[in-house]
Design a protein around this nucleic acid. Structure first.
Length: 469
RNA sequence: GCGCGGAUGCCAGAGAGGCUCAAUGGCUCGGUCCGCAAAACCGAAGUGCAGUGGUUCGAAUCCACUUCCGCGCUCCA
């Protein structure tokens, strides 16, 4: 069966077929690094990572680029209000460059902690000013942009397809009464490509004077630089659909005369207690907050990844606990496979594995139906546990499971490590058990538990593992 | 106003005409194993797919209307 994804552009599921056989060019809208990323941000990023990993699982060479926006977002309109970077800089009494470096670093570190596959590049807007200027000049040449004073605007009227992604048309927007006439703009829908503002801290020279790039141009310029004029997949949060992605299409297609992207995929918002996460409601959690609650990185990953990306997901601490339980269960399954001593043969186990693989792929092929895919993993675990495989059969299952887990990547193959002190206590407990000294044995187990090491006894001796906390 | 998406068992959450009188986790109860604990496994319980009407031999699944909820419409992943 072919891989199908829901395309925001066509509003239906479509068979996925990249331009170049076996290669996927994917651009993910990344964070604006003005503050700590929250788990809602990470839902979109985890979605992008799982998508990338599944495509790799399916044998594609995925060229993935995720930008880091470190300039240019303005709090209100493309013309007024304060740049968020600069606002935060004032709060922290630092300059915007420091803010960008600081939070950008945190973002990359969290990616690592959450087990993200490395992207081909994480281009920063500030490193690509020349590319943006070149694109703006091209747009002016082609008559899609115009200069007013030291500012440059994109002329929406020059691009008839404007609105094809979001379905927004001018009249509707006006009905929403959000568009106000602007003295410099020929059309209220027009948006800034280059802005002049003497108060702005981050400034660059341009043919139109000192200024800074507009809100959308970075993604057009950078995706073209790293991935070419036509992308196979472009992802982002649902809020990016309009105006951000609509404007990207307008800029890129006007500049290059080519389709900008074939497949648009958007992750829906993460809600908290049924409402959108927002600072004013106080239901705003950073990744760190979640870790502080004792949720492990794999569990957060799992929790964010295993509800369908096009479905609003309701975050709760209970849902995190459920995710933790699921992850622990699968990790435990993986552990047992390394320690198998049952009787079931390879022949018995093979059809179970085959079925799991088939079900897993059928689910993921269908627009990343993660519920079906994870159900296959749990069924695999239960059926294999029931059979109790011999070492050879277990090794076969283990290899298959590890392959499947490259998609959700809960890190189940990572061994537990114990400190010398913990190892000493474990040895002592093993000795106590050998002489049936249950009092010492139980005492040592408690001691180990306090250190975060859980010990389970089996007919073949004790089995220690690190508590997932 | 315009445009999306949703309402499934105690909870989370799949299923999009018959193979599903509802996958998979969790929860509860009983059991196997077992020094204890844990894990694993086995079994049981519970409900009937928001409501109404329709299409059909047959509907969570299609159509219509109703009710409720969330999101977008230049801050946002």
């Amino acid at each position: 069966m072919a891989i199908q994804f829901y395309n925001t552009l066509t509003k239906k599921k479509e068979e996925f077929a990249p331009q170049e056989k076996g290669v996927v060019r994917m651009y993910n809208c990344g964070p604006t690094v003005y503050s700590y990323p929250h788990i809602g941000n990470f839902r979109a990023f985890v979605f992008a990572d799982v998508l990338r990993r599944y495509l790799e699982y399916r044998g594609f060479d995925v060229k993935q680029v995720m930008n880091i926006t470190d300039v240019g977002h303005i709090t209100h309109d493309a013309d007024e209000g304060e740049d968020k970077m600069e606002l935060q800089a004032k709060k922290e009494k630092r300059d915007p460059w420091q803010i960008a470096a600081h939070y950008g670093g945190i973002f990359l570190d969290l990616r690592k902690q959450l087990g993200f596959a490395d992207a081909l590049a994480h281009p920063k807007a500030t490193d690509h000013i020349p590319e943006m200027l070149a694109m703006i000049e091209k747009l002016i040449e082609k008559g899609h942009a115009y200069v007013v004073g030291h500012n440059v605007y994109y002329s929406v009227a020059s691009f008839p397809n404007y609105g094809k992604l979001s379905g927004n048309i001018t009249e509707d927007l006006e009905a929403g009464a959000r568009i106000e006439p602007h003295p410099d703009k020929k059309d209220p829908r027009d948006f800034a490509l280059w802005k002049h503002d003497p108060h702005h801290v981050m400034q660059w020279d341009s043919p139109w004077g000192k200024g800074f790039p507009g809100w959308h141009i970075e993604c057009s310029a950078m995706s073209m630089k790293y991935l070419g004029e036509t992308l196979d997949i472009h992802t982002g949060g649902e809020d990016n659909i309009f105006p951000h992605h609509e404007c990207e299409i307008a800029q890129s297609e006007a500049a290059n005369g080519k389709l900008f992207c074939k497949m648009w995929m958007h992750a829906r918002f993460l809600l908290v207690d049924g409402q959108k996460m927002s600072k004013s409601l106080g239901n705003f959690y950073t990744v760190e907050d979640v870790f502080k609650h004792g949720v492990t990185a794999p569990a957060l990953r799992w929790g964010l990844a295993t509800s369908h990306y096009r479905q609003q997901m309701n975050f709760s601490w209970e849902s995190m606990q459920v995710a933790q339980g699921s992850v622990d269960k699968l990790i435990e399954f993986r552990r047992r496979l390394s320690d198998a001593h049952g009787a079931a043969t390879l022949e018995l186990v093979k059809p179970i594995v085959e079925k799991a693989r088939k079900d897993f792929e059928r689910g993921m092929d269908d627009d990343l139906n993660v519920s079906e895919a994870t159900a296959a993993l749990f069924t695999l675990a239960r059926e294999v546990n029931r059979l109790d495989p011999n070492p050879q059969a277990a090794a076969f299952v283990r290899d298959a499971f590890d392959k499947l887990d490259t998609v959700f990547n809960i890190g189940s193959a990572l061994p537990d490590v114990f400190t010398p002190e913990e190892q000493r206590l474990l040895d002592a407990r093993a000795a106590a058990r050998a002489s049936k000294n249950w009092d010492d044995s139980d005492r040592l187990r408690k001691e180990l538990e306090a250190k975060g090491v859980l010990v389970e006894d089996s007919p073949r001796g004790q089995r220690p593992r690190r508590a997932r906390k």
